[in-house]
Design a protein around this nucleic acid. Structure first.
Lengths: 136, 136
DNA sequence: GAACGTAAATAATAATTATTGTAAAAAAAA
DNA sequence: TTTTTTTTACAATAATTATTATTTACGTTC
């Protein structure tokens, strides 16, 4: 978490209480919370925080690559403090279920694409949406 | 397109003019249009059509797997009449650029996952988000 | 085939939700 | 103290969903 203070400083951003709590809320959750959910969490420790601040803060974090936006089919934005490349497991309904980390896969894919050279564009990153049936 | 009439019938859905035009609008575009864009297209041939109908129709199609929702970072839903597995190329800003079809890739991934057997869930589909820098 | 009843689909519009914009207040830094 | 950054409060917007009335399609009976 001190890590974050340094990162903020290195980007010319002030380490305010709001920012630290927002980041903490994200970092301590693997649920890819929405802005609203982050707001509720942060409100518990900082009751005066405003929802706008949550949005602003999340947006600032995304701009500075401290946080990723996670795409979801419902349209509501979700956020993730884990910015290293990883993949997401979705339900058949399009809702996100879990993270999936796999370095071997990244290598496999990048070597596959480097052989094919199919793109006009340079590939920055490859992320998987793994759509699974939830067995009950 | 007659194909669609049959599919609709098989799912107990009536083949109304609205549904056929909405589907046609999607099918004839590779732009993953938004509901609003579909609305404008359909309006040209069916001026009395309402935006609600577009939303309803798209939702009905998605429920019946005739159409897919495409993830996009702006939050606005985009739709795609191509339901066979394929992948999407995104800009670094998170906007969708193009489709990417690749059967070899699907095989590669499925064999990779079948070897690993890592999941509690059954994998239905694997889609890639390929994030590219747009070279200018 | 025309008239009738019923259910499905559509249209018009209101309401809601998520998000963004704006301006004032507060906090931090210089 | 002055200036800049950040936060707050609140207004505004955009996308989507919900509600209700109307229309349309379809099956049944005459």
């Amino acid at each position: 978490m001190n890590n974050l203070k340094e990162k903020l400083a290195s980007k010319g951003l002030k380490a305010t209480a709001q920012r630290l709590y927002v980041y903490e809320a994200l970092f301590n959750s693997r649920e890819h919370p929405t802005a609203e959910e982050v707001f509720r969490k942060v409100s518990k420790v900082l009751p005066s925080v405003s929802l706008s601040t949550i949005y602003n803060t999340l947006e600032t974090f995304v701009e500075h690559n401290l946080v990723n936006k996670v795409l979801s089919e419902s349209g509501t934005a979700r956020y993730d403090a884990f910015v290293e490349t990883h993949h997401h497991i979705y339900s058949e309904k399009g809702e996100i279920i879990a993270d999936y980390y796999d370095d071997g896969l990244a290598e496999l894919l990048l070597s596959y694409f480097s052989k094919k050279k199919i793109f006009d564009y340079e590939i920055k990153e490859v992320r998987l949406q793994i759509i699974c049936s939830t067995k009950e």
